[in-house]
Amino acid sequence: MALLEVRNLDVRFGLRSGEVQALRDINFSLERGERLGVVGESGAGKSVLGFSILNLLSQPGYIAGGEILFEGQNLAAMSPKQLRSIRGNRISMIFQDPMMTLNPVLTIGQQMVECLLAHRKISRKDARRIALQKLKQVQIPSPETRIDQYPHELSGGMRQRIVIAIGLLMDPDIIIADEPTTALDVTIQAEIMDLMLELCERNSVALILITHDLGIVSQVTRRAMVMYAGRIIEQGPTREIINDAQHPYTQGLMNALPQMAIPGQRLNQIRGSMPPLQNIPTGCAFNPRCDYVLDVCHRELPGFTRSGGCKVACHMVAQMKLEEEAAVHALEVK
């Protein structure tokens, strides 16, 4: 049994202007200690996916269907109390902007100790000792001083280290890291990312790494999912996706990577932009931006086609597979 298995997840926002579908057909699984990358442009639904896993969608958002099986238990159908015993304990989350994640009026120590006390029957003193130990693990200098300081007394990088320490406090099974370095100064991004990866590795924590940067995903994850307009349009082994992207959108993301640019030329950005949820085109959501668009793309939502180790949602890929198979079949018949 996979550690986490998400089946047919369907998430909606009940907006005043009507209901919009934020996530559809979400299917994936995560093994113990695995690193899974989630990529896509801003607005693809990556953060919504992260919050959905913890069943923590805010107001108009709700899980309209599907299952989130954590060790076989469905988080989508759990009581609030059961959910609380999982959040921050078995599955924790690291947010994007460390300047906003920590409560400005509580000390670092208070924000760490409360988490330990919520999940374990230990004394305040022991909790503080564990908190100090975690601060050391994330390489906060002079943790004894820092623990009694307020967030505003610390730099952004320092705060993200603390958020990581809080994420790791309970030695969880899964960490969902939502763009954990995007808001940080470029000079420290790699350092913080390495620290997080190393700590996850050392504690055999499975990591769901959400990012808009395909480069990072290619460097650090074994499997990856590409999201577009609330759907996973391609998923599979990272190496396959990087070396031989099937979906036109994934190919576009690859070509847009700075590493792929020909010196002196402009980056190959995909033309157009992600449609807003209220206004997703019928058929394939990517069709207005796609160079390979077929007639059927305007009419039908593409299903998932297997291609190597990947699952791809594209009519063009499906047709190519059919033709390939036909050719193979023809050869065999001969």
Partner: peptide, 27 residues
Amino acid sequence: LQSEYVKFAWAKGLSPRRIYFLHALKN
């Protein structure tokens, strides 16, 4: 209640009482 730090407090698995009456009320 819409702020990131309150969402983070929920993600930590704290009780609603603590979130409402400490994290949110103080701010």
